[in-house]
Write a protein that binds this DNA or RNA. Structure first.
Length: 195
DNA sequence: CGCATTTGACCAGCGC
DNA sequence: GCGCTGGTCAAATGCG
């Protein structure tokens, strides 16, 4: 199976009633959603497509690679080009990205409660589990250090927030912090590149 | 005292 | 059926 992104998509099962305006691209919207920019003029995100394989988003913040897939599969793209995927069993939207950071947990504007920590066989580093502490919000995130370079943190978000960011100041200027409803989807053809 | 974190136990899915 | 693995639960503990 090979995976690639297409701008042609089936109807999204999770329509977003609160699209974020004035974004040059859908990925920019996600970028804003995740609140990774610091507000400086240097903030930017660009979208490039790597040889019919995956979409890479770069920015002056911390993201060096980011991918988005439609449900029910997510893909992580590592700097060495290795891609890994995992099926989700509940069809929840999954967004994963890899950042270079000394901190394990980035402040994305939402409030999280840790509910688990696990050593996984595939990594010498522990995996931490968080869920959104806002009542009724089912969003979860999973944080672990990159196996191949522990200076990188892999953060995986599952689900969609059903409430605004509980922060103040700059965040209050944003219309409503829910994920932009991506039209992007990914499709499969022959051989699997995943390890 | 209330809330967040820690951590071992438990459970479900999967492969053999 | 059994064991392995990843994800979640929940009691204990810590902290403001």
């Amino acid at each position: 199976m090979d995976y690639y992104y297409s701008s042609a998509s089936p109807p999204n099962p999770h329509p977003n009633p609160y699209p974020i305006p004035n974004c040059a691209s859908q990925f920019e919207c996600l970028y804003h959603y995740l609140m990774l920019e610091d507000g400086s003029e240097e903030d930017s995100c660009s979208q490039t497509t790597a040889a019919a394989s995956a979409v890479t988003v770069t920015g002056t913040g911390h993201i060096d690679q980011l991918i988005h897939t439609a449900t029910p599969t997510h893909v992580l793209v590592f700097s060495d080009g290795v891609r890994r995927s995992k099926e989700t069993d509940d069809g929840a939207r999954v967004v994963a990205f890899r950042t270079k950071s000394e901190l394990d947990v980035m402040d994305d504007g939402f409030k999280w409660r840790k509910y688990g920590k696990k050593m996984v066989k595939s990594s010498p580093n522990p995996r931490n589990y968080y869920r959104c502490s806002s009542g009724g919000c089912e969003v979860k995130k999973r944080i672990e250090r990159d196996i191949e370079d522990s200076s990188y943190v892999i953060t995986t978000y599952t689900g969609i927030h059903n409430h605004p960011i509980p922060g103040v100041g700059y965040y209050n200027q944003m219309p409503l912090m829910v994920p932009y409803d991506y039209d992007w989807t990914f499709q499969a053809s022959s051989q699997s590149p995943f390890s």
